[in-house]
Amino acid sequence: MPAEDANPLAPERVARAVEEACQAFADARTAAELKEARIAHTGDRSPLALANRAIGTLPGPERKDAGQRIGRARAQVAQALSAREQEVVAAELEARLVAETVDVTVPVASAPVGAVHPITALMDQMCDVFVGMGWEVAEGPELEAEWLNFDALNLGPDHPARSTADTLFVDPVDHQTVMRTHTSPVQARTLLTRRPPVYVVCPGKVYRADEFDPTHLPVFHQIEGLVVDKGITMAHLRGVLDHFARAMFGDIRTRMRPNYFPFTEPSAEVDLECFVCHGESVGNPDRPCRTCSSEGWIEWGGCGVVNPRVLVACGVDPEVYSGFAFGMGIDRTLMSRNNAADLRDMVEGDVRFSRSLVGMAR
């Protein structure tokens, strides 16, 4: 081999190193191949790197010329590498885009999407109204002691609600357990386990020996509220129910009609102004209203001041504390809000029913 070729600083050798580097970069088709070429031609053991280190062995007058020549060569190689990197990256991106292209016009089989049941959604919304007022949500078992379901609430042994025609007793009957007929036992449990003041709302599932028809279900849902504190009156109850009604139905009027419930005294039924005819169908045969039967009002639930006997049964002094309670059917509220015609639709499991009403129930 000629001595000139063995010299890493020889102009011919430097030019050949540049040519080989540029050719290796041009031949690289992938980022991995380009990386190998970069290491081979710009790494620490590459010809140009060895030539750069050899500059220090030259005498002073020759060192400057050699340094400029090697510097130009390395700059040329770096420029070729940078240009090829851009080309390889662009080519790989183009290939990936082609490989991952999705034809959005191709029909696809979509799996049916479920939905939160409208009853659950409305129950959550109702609870949010009371939580926003600082109340608590209380829950209890659906299999309940007969004493808590009836006796603690002033429903005596001879009350018709305690018959098997209305209540589902659990075998053996002498164990005195029932499927709760209302969520009022949760109120009694609350008073038995904590001292006033009490502000709770009790949502849940209840059971009755009712028919399965468009307006009745043997299993349905209620929400009840209980307040026990000092100085509580019927006026506080009216304010809470007006606020609750507006949260559920918008700007709507309410009224109270005297009624009787064993666990409240005085007691009342709460009616809502008909949200279809707004009372205009009353006495007007030309504009009948099926929603309210042309009465102008729709029954919503029961309420009243807590009977002192209930407070005594739960260990609360009625001379110090008073309270109010109310209860509404969640299923019927959903029917009123969304014009659902048949209660059975709510339990038959058709997801189309849930999807159609859940947005309106929220």
Rank of each mutant, 00 (worst) to 15 (best):
266 P>G: 00
189 R>N: 03
94 E>W: 08
350 D>T: 05
208 R>Y: 06
101 T>S: 04
88 V>Q: 12
85 E>R: 10
209 A>W: 01
266 P>E: 02
147 W>R: 10
324 F>K: 11
350 D>F: 07
61 P>Q: 12
5 D>I: 14
15 A>N: 00
303 C>V: 01
170 V>G: 12
149 N>H: 08
174 D>T: 15
259 N>Y: 13
207 Y>N: 06
110 S>A: 15
262 P>L: 00
256 M>V: 14
250 G>T: 03
238 R>D: 10
340 A>G: 11
247 A>E: 12
343 L>F: 09
178 V>G: 02
298 I>A: 12
351 V>F: 14
320 V>Q: 13
252 I>Q: 01
201 V>G: 02
43 G>N: 05
220 F>W: 03
150 F>V: 09
356 S>D: 15
24 A>C: 11
128 D>W: 05
188 A>H: 09
326 F>T: 10
343 L>R: 05
38 R>W: 01
81 L>M: 08
286 D>V: 13
199 Y>R: 15
227 V>I: 07
344 R>F: 12
188 A>K: 02
239 G>P: 10
219 V>H: 11
242 D>G: 13
133 M>G: 04
339 N>M: 13
39 I>Y: 06
35 K>H: 12
83 A>W: 02
277 C>V: 03
87 E>I: 06
102 V>W: 00
117 H>I: 02
168 L>E: 04
198 V>K: 08
359 G>T: 13
182 H>I: 00
249 F>N: 05
87 E>N: 05
222 Q>G: 00
72 R>Y: 01
144 E>W: 05
33 E>D: 13
345 D>Y: 15
129 V>H: 13
269 E>R: 12
311 L>E: 03
300 W>Y: 10
14 V>H: 05
198 V>N: 09
214 P>V: 07
361 A>G: 08
39 I>K: 14
361 A>Y: 06
108 V>D: 00
